[in-house]
């Protein structure tokens, strides 16, 4: 579903991604781990066609980036630590707006389904600026799944959420993954991603330095695997 070959991203003289190779199969849930400044957000922004790669090949759902960016964007849902929502619109109005941008048919029905999914049906007429951080993040997921994308990108979605909000977010993430979507998620919360993802990749100094699956991990701890892979690099 996602193929990335020899991806390089430079900001002036600084090279953030150094020939990164990355593949994700359809339906896989990949957690992208790594220290601050490793290039995780930059990598997700490139996959989301929000930033241009300096070098390398990217193919998502059969479409190449950046040449077929619009076709890729139609198949992508993106959630970052920013909600990407308008505070002066209600929850339903935000979804109406993004639904129109994605040209979704039967929009009203789809909005009802999505608000049910993220548990905000009762708050559909409330302004987003009155929502808690957790509710905004749930609505952000609703916005991202509105057009039923094949691939979901989550950039540290747990940032700034309290325990209950994180638990509710995890429930929604599991639900999203259970519907067969391909998911790539960056996170620093190893305990949470350990339960969610099926594969764990460590991104350090601009390349994937280690990779394992939940089945390979077995009884051992994800934290140990992560620390060991960072020490080796």
């Amino acid at each position: 579903m996602i193929q990335v070959r020899k991806l390089v991203k430079r900001f002036g003289l600084k090279t953030v991604l150094r020939g990164l190779d990355f593949q994700v199969q359809e339906g896989e849930f990949v957690a992208l781990l790594g220290p601050n400044g490793a290039g995780k957000t930059t990598f997700l922004r490139i996959l989301a066609s929000l930033a241009q790669p300096s070098l390398g090949e990217i193919c998502i759902a059969g479409y190449a980036l950046p040449t077929q960016a619009a076709a890729v964007r139609r198949r992508l849902g993106v959630v970052s630590h920013m909600p990407l929502l308008y505070g002066d619109l209600t929850a339903a109005e935000n979804l109406v707006f993004f639904g129109r941008m994605y040209d979704i048919s039967s929009l009203d029905q789809r909005i009802d389904e999505v608000l049910e999914l993220v548990g905000l049906a009762a708050r559909r007429r409330d302004l987003v600026r009155t929502f808690s951080r957790g509710m905004q993040q749930r609505l952000a997921i609703g916005r991202a799944v509105l057009h039923d994308p094949e691939v979901m990108l989550f950039d540290e979605p747990h940032t700034g959420l309290d325990q209950d909000a994180c638990d509710m977010l995890d429930k929604i993430l599991r639900d999203v993954a259970a519907r067969g979507r391909t998911v790539v998620m960056t996170s620093h919360d190893l305990a949470r991603v350990e339960d969610l993802a099926s594969r764990f990749d460590v991104l350090s100094r601009g390349v994937i330095t280690a990779s394992t699956t939940r089945s390979k991990l077995g009884q051992s701890n994800l934290l140990d695997f992560y620390r060991q892979s960072l020490q080796e690099t």
Partner: peptide
């Protein structure tokens, strides 16, 4: 609020 990214997506 990062909405420009939402538009660009």
């Amino acid at each position: 609020r990062g909405c420009l990214d939402g538009l660009l997506l």
